[in-house]
Computed example of a mutant assay.
Amino acid sequence: MLGSGEVRRIAAELGLRPTKRLGQNFVIDPNTVRRIVAAAGVGADDVVLEVGPGLGSLTLGLLPRCRAVLAVEIDPVLARRLPVTVGERAPELAERLTVIRGDALRTSSAELPEAPTALVANLPYNVAVPVVLHLLAELPTLTSGLVMVQAEVADRMAAAPGSRVYGVPSVKAAWYAEVRRVATVPRSVFWPVPNVDSALVLLRRREPPSDADRGAVFDLVDAAFAQRRKTLRAALASWAGGSTRAGAVLDAAGIDPRARGEQLTVADFARIARTAAKLSD
């Protein structure tokens, strides 16, 4: 793993100035890397997908613990440097690393040399939720994940119905997985130091809550939270084709039309979508 001095030395060699646009905040504390790897719980048979490996500190922590690391890096300079760093620091593990130059928001199974089983990543704050949802949808072989995200984003992803921060990210993440916030990460372990704290979020894949169409459920969720102060009957009027039909769908699904989206579980949203589809047949 890389300490503060090593991270800065490599960055200087590369002429690298971390950019806010790419969310480049590098972990400079080896103990934090050890915490992440331990919390991820990956084993000798796992193929780990790491998004945004940066200068390679987390990569170096993962390689001894798993069968392979598939590192997706959007920055071409960092993508070229990562194999060099691993070759210098852990040459006996270099063959376990594959670097994929690309955008995680567009990564598909066809681009990967083998199917990943675990996602472990320090994710850029501005794209954390879209990246997680995209990869869970695109890569069904991912059975677990441990991601470091902005603390507020972690709260939203792991929120339960009724929580003040429960919303679209909470419901959509729950479609794919059980989600828990497991630890807080202070801003002082990063370089450059961000303006917010981070947190670790653990994901465990599970079956979707029903046979409802995922796209239909997600459209429903978006509509329900677009006007979260309104009752579901009012908030879903455009989605359903009118408030009267929205009320009828909700009644048929066994959901109180006076409820609000923040009170519903992902299974409730799935039931509404499935009921709407049946009533349209």
Rank of each mutant, 00 (worst) to 15 (best):
R214N: 09
S198E: 08
R180I: 02
E207I: 00
A159K: 07
N195S: 15
A223T: 07
V193T: 15
A223L: 09
L220F: 06
D155K: 04
G162S: 10
S170E: 06
A234W: 06
A224K: 05
P161M: 10
S243A: 15
A223W: 14
A223N: 08
A159C: 03
A199E: 05
R205I: 11
R205P: 10
A234L: 13
L220G: 04
G241L: 12
R206Y: 04
L236P: 13
L202S: 13
A173D: 02
R214K: 13
R187V: 03
K230E: 09
L250W: 15
L250Y: 14
M157C: 08
R181C: 06
A158Y: 04
A248Y: 03
K230H: 12
R214Y: 11
N195T: 04
R228E: 04
G247Q: 04
S243Y: 11
A234H: 14
V168Y: 07
K172A: 08
D213Y: 02
S163P: 07
L232S: 11
F190L: 05
P192Y: 15
S210G: 13
L236Y: 09
R228L: 09
Q227E: 10
V182D: 10
R214T: 03
P194N: 07
A177P: 06
R156H: 09
L203T: 00
V249W: 14
L250E: 08
R205L: 13
A173Y: 00
R233V: 02
S163A: 14
A183W: 00
L203D: 04
L203S: 05
Q227A: 09
V165W: 02
D222L: 03
W191N: 04
S238N: 10
P194W: 11
S198Y: 06
S188A: 15
R156G: 02
D213M: 10
V189K: 01
V196H: 09
A226P: 09
G247I: 01
A158R: 12
A234D: 12
P169S: 03
P161F: 05
V217G: 08
V185R: 04
D222W: 00
V193E: 15
V179H: 07
T184A: 15
D155P: 01
V217M: 08
F218I: 00
E178Q: 13
A224F: 12
E178T: 15
A158M: 06
D219M: 01
A226N: 12
W175N: 14
